[in-house]
Write a protein that binds this DNA or RNA. Structure first.
Lengths: 257, 257
DNA sequence: TGTGATTGTCTGGTATTTCGGACACAATTC
DNA sequence: GAATTGTGTCCGAAATACCAGACAATCACA
């Protein structure tokens, strides 16, 4: 992802900005200028200058505690994106519907490079819904959606595509690529994937594919529910998701991207 | 707003990018490179290069029809902003609640420079809810919220602050600054403002203040409802909004911003 | 209060990026 | 099919934005 957008040596302002925002997103919390300098590896004086520019533009905001984070403008731009990407806009309506109907967190997930990201997330208005952060890059093997998104990948292809370290779960345990490949082909044949307590212990994820015109999986929608779910409800949710997945697949005609 | 972020002559890449994104936001729809060049007044070759860089970074996306608009990354950054700005996050929960309860569009509005902008908008899931675009700068006198946000401004202060042309409604009709000042002081004394059919004919807006610690109005929350609303329901919504406004005002202690 | 670390500002030189304009190619128009 | 207009790429020159580093101000702590 972030290629040479950070690092020392003279760089274009625009690349520095991109690197800066990527870092901010990656850490996912307000940071001090000092921290920003460390994260981006950019020259101190440059960072000060860029930050000043971005603050003035409303791309960043300085909070009362002096820390920096994204500003209003980013929200506006992001909202513009959501409105104008046909596929995303349609998916969002479906997620809202699913979450309203079943009171579970529903998400739209996609690949970004060799990582999995949550593109959209709708949480039910209940106190302890399980969430995960929009846009955060996560190793593919950690997720149910990953098993759907990598449809068609065999062990060799996996080895080439997925970074070695991504097979190691937060717990330290290692997923065997062969097992992962088996999960993938099972997902392909049954049309959905379920993981239980993979990264979390208490979470259970159910993912189904959304396909483009050529039948390739381009995204997934998933429910994230408590691991204590019973089989009957799980089957019901699978059914509901599959239906939604089909709906989002077919009309994906000329929409955006 | 957009100061020297557009225009001819040599400019920093970062300023060009800011100008480019501002233009995209202002037009509010996907555009061709040609159009971008016109909008930003930037050199053609520069625009091509910046666009390429931004596309690669995922800040922009090229759609199937070749037009450009904001990309995924902006959505991620915007989501980060929403999560981490305490005040915004709290306001959002309140809006969701209000909209769920009363099935009307509710919004959080603020000033940005000498313009009014919708910072957050929650629409009820019904077919013909009245909406307005998040982040779009609108002349202050066109709105109910404007009458609340400018609390304390007399005719002279208005004259100094609000651009002359902003008093002209889309219909071509002109709002008299004196009338506007009267609306403002009425809003201050009754604690809310209502406008009926101001820009739209069919829309009715109800706005109440959210105050910072010093008592200054820093934002409004409002309902946008159909103009056919009856007095009783309107009174009820005013009451509900006022309560919400009070809730958002008090604890605004050390929040963000 | 002294000493060292941290944070923020400023300035000048130069490695680099921006920009103008030329060029190639495609799409229209006459 | 010639002429015109629109779109995208490439290149060299030079204006300048980025960076290093010096300095000032503030803080931390003994």
């Amino acid at each position: 992802m972030s290629e040479a957008t950070t690092g020392k040596g003279r760089a274009r302002g625009i690349d520095r900005i991109i690197g800066l925002c990527d870092c901010l997103h990656r850490v996912g919390r307000p940071v001090s200028v000092r921290e920003l300098v460390e994260l981006t590896q950019a020259p101190r004086s440059s960072v000060y200058e860029q930050v000043a520019t971005l603050l003035e533009a409303g791309w960043l905001e300085e909070r009362t505690d002096g820390l920096l984070f994204f500003g209003r403008k980013m929200h506006y731009f992001g909202t513009d994106y959501l409105r104008h990407d046909d596929f995303i806009a349609r998916a969002r309506r479906v997620l809202v519907e699913l979450t309203a109907e079943h009171a579970e967190t529903s998400q739209l997930c996609m690949l970004e490079g060799d990582k999995y990201v949550v593109a959209l997330s709708e949480m039910p208005p209940r106190p302890f819904a399980i969430s995960s952060e929009v846009g955060m890059a996560t190793p593919i093997p950690w997720t149910a959606s990953g098993r759907v998104l990598l449809e068609g990948y065999d062990a060799a292809a996996l080895h080439a595509f997925v970074p070695e370290e991504d097979f190691i779960l937060p717990s330290g345990e290692r997923i065997q690529p062969a097992d992962f490949a088996a999960d993938i082909s099972r997902a392909a044949s049954q049309g959905y994937a379920v993981t239980r307590g993979l990264v979390d212990g208490f979470a259970c994820c159910i993912a189904v594919p959304i396909r483009d015109l050529r039948g390739k999986v381009k995204a997934t929608i998933c429910f994230t529910v408590g691991n204590d779910i019973d089989d009957q409800r799980l089957a019901m949710l699978v059914e509901v998701l599959s239906e939604a997945g089909r709906r989002l697949s077919e009309v994906s005609v000329s929409g955006a991207r």
